[in-house]
């Protein structure tokens, strides 16, 4: 299972970021949300970016401490913060934001400077709250492919455009 993202349904309200930070941090702090929304103002579109729990997860394979593993129940790639030594190897190999110069600009897995914690989607133990509270079903908790969802490659591209502040142009929405 994973959180599939359908950008054509996203309105950019960022309820997902807030509920994520509330669940994981006990406060309203979008900078620590495991899901991040990228806004493109000229084409008036928004793209949520969140870990896709890759089948052959580079972060899991690269971790020198074996601090990253797969949760058999939820299929989430999860971090054991006790074992983690904050070396940043996982961040550097994550394909979403691979070309980002600054590792802080990577989104699907990143190191929070202040707390020295790895921030990464853990699927809320099988009941992802971002999916639950998304007003427009732009986020779907699923095992199967979903129509209109963004692939990892498309998220990579969106992030690259965002960092360059170039406009990403997607098809319009259905308007419901």
């Amino acid at each position: 299972m994973r959180v599939a993202v359908i950008p054509s349904r996203c309105t950019g309200c960022r309820v997902c970021e807030l509920v994520c930070s509330e669940v994981h941090e006990g406060t309203f702090q979008p900078s620590k949300a495991r899901i991040q929304v990228l806004s493109f103002d000229e084409t008036v579109q928004d793209v949520p970016v969140v870990c896709q729990q890759c089948v052959d997860a580079p972060c899991l394979e690269a971790c020198p401490q074996e601090a990253i593993s797969r949760d058999i129940k939820t299929n989430a790639v999860v971090v054991d913060q006790e074992l983690c030594i904050q070396c940043g190897t996982c961040v550097s190999v994550c394909v979403i934001g691979l070309d980002a110069v600054d590792p802080q600009q990577k989104l699907a897995i990143r190191l929070d400077e202040k707390s020295q914690m790895l921030l990464k989607c853990d699927l809320c133990d099988g009941d992802p709250q971002c999916v639950k509270f998304c007003p427009t079903e732009a986020l779907i908790f699923t095992k199967k492919p979903v129509e209109g969802e963004f692939s990892v490659e498309e998220m990579m591209e969106a992030l690259e455009y965002f960092l360059q502040q170039k406009e990403l142009s997607l098809p319009g929405q259905e308007g419901k």
Partner: peptide
Amino acid sequence: YHTSRACGTCRLACKKAFKVDEGPYKGLIT
């Protein structure tokens, strides 16, 4: 109709973006 947009934490998304496909303002998204 092109897309909908919401301000922070809003479920209404009352901001509508529109696209013009022909005429003098062809290509306009606003």
